[in-house]
Design a protein around this nucleic acid. Structure first.
Lengths: 197, 197
DNA sequence: AGTTTTGCGTTGCGGTCGCAACGTAACACG
DNA sequence: CGTGTTACGTTGCGACCGCAACGCAAAACT
């Protein structure tokens, strides 16, 4: 990345702007996301935002990408904290619990994710990366279930679908304040009990 | 065109406008919901919309109420179709499957519900009715599980949380096109297998 | 040194937004 | 028959929107 008139990490600026977008979206929803608003949150001029994103849709798509990478990183870190070769059940429980919106930072991320979910539901062309993400997670979870000695009669692929759906649903309900973190975690553990011995 | 200038069913008009709002939201998301747009969809002037809803927030809140009542009606109808005293497991499976976005009309409703979920996540003051709704469902499901002879070791309240979360998650994933209806229904049945004999 | 390229700010245009204000027509009621 | 009330329609204002256009400074290349 050499030889450009000004030495600026293009991608880093885009990321910084996208993070401002995510902050705005986490607080007031995606409908509050405008070029000027995001620019103000990022502490730059709206002209600069337009310099790094030719269109708003482009900015949105990039922000969605940032969200995905961020949660991927977070999950990987949580998994790494368990040390090498953790027991599958413990791994899955840790990863899922890590994503659940149980404290404010995680709730903010959850609100952003929910907003983008509704966003992609109406713009199918932007939903592809999310689909790929879930497919990867599905394969990973199924593999871990297989490796963890599931109860007899448990189909790992089916169980993976169930576990991820449970995670999503618990997240949504937690965000809505329908019950507290303990209730959600208890339900998670009870579900894991039905998969593993 | 008959004489009605004075004698008008206030609530019926509000509902008709709200339904137009839901159609707009289902197609283009909540951010496309504006007074003029909703008015056009409803085939009335924007002035009339303002006559029935003093503010946009008021219109939103009413529309949310309509969504809730509508799904409540739909669920009750599905339950009634099973005749008197249906087996709890069959009841629960029918009700949950009824709500899953497996065909276009249900997908449209699902998109609306998802949009409002993201909406209330950022406007906590509008989330109360949703919370009450889930609480009622939770109680109903737990009671049905209790009545259906759950497997030993199953706590009905915990299981109710799990089942409703699974339903929510399967719905979201179906909306995103992450897998097809059969996969979701298989996961649902597998989950019910872990609750009942 | 001069040219080019890039980074970034400023301005403003056409459009849409929520909403208040006002006008009007048809009824209800005295 | 006049008066108030309800049910709309119309207009327009101030704010905000995305985005194009243009200007300019500074760094890189020749």
């Amino acid at each position: 990345m050499w030889g450009m008139p000004k030495v600026v990490d293009h991608n880093e600026r885009r990321t910084r702007i996208a993070e401002a977008l995510l902050r705005v979206a986490g607080e007031h929803g995606l409908e509050a996301v405008s070029l000027r608003h995001v620019a103000a949150e990022a502490g730059v001029t709206s002209g600069m935002v337009q310099h790094y994103f030719r269109t708003k849709d482009e900015m949105m798509a990039f922000a969605l990408e940032v969200v995905r990478e961020r949660s991927e990183t977070r999950i990987a870190a949580a998994a790494a904290d368990l040390g090498p070769d953790p027991a599958p059940r413990r791994l899955l429980r840790t990863v899922v619990a890590e994503v659940l919106p149980v404290d404010e930072p995680r709730r903010a991320d959850g609100r952003v994710a929910l907003a983008f979910l509704a966003y992609t539901a109406v713009r199918p062309e932007a939903a592809a990366p999310l689909r790929a993400d879930t497919a990867a997670m599905l394969a990973f979870v199924a593999e871990r279930i297989r490796a963890g000695g599931p109860r007899p009669g448990i189909d790992p692929d089916r169980a993976a679908v169930g576990l991820l759906a449970l995670m999503e649903g618990l997240g949504v309900h937690l965000l809505g304040g329908h019950y507290d973190a303990r209730t959600a975690l208890d339900a998670l553990d009870a579900h894991l009990d039905t998969i593993f011995e």
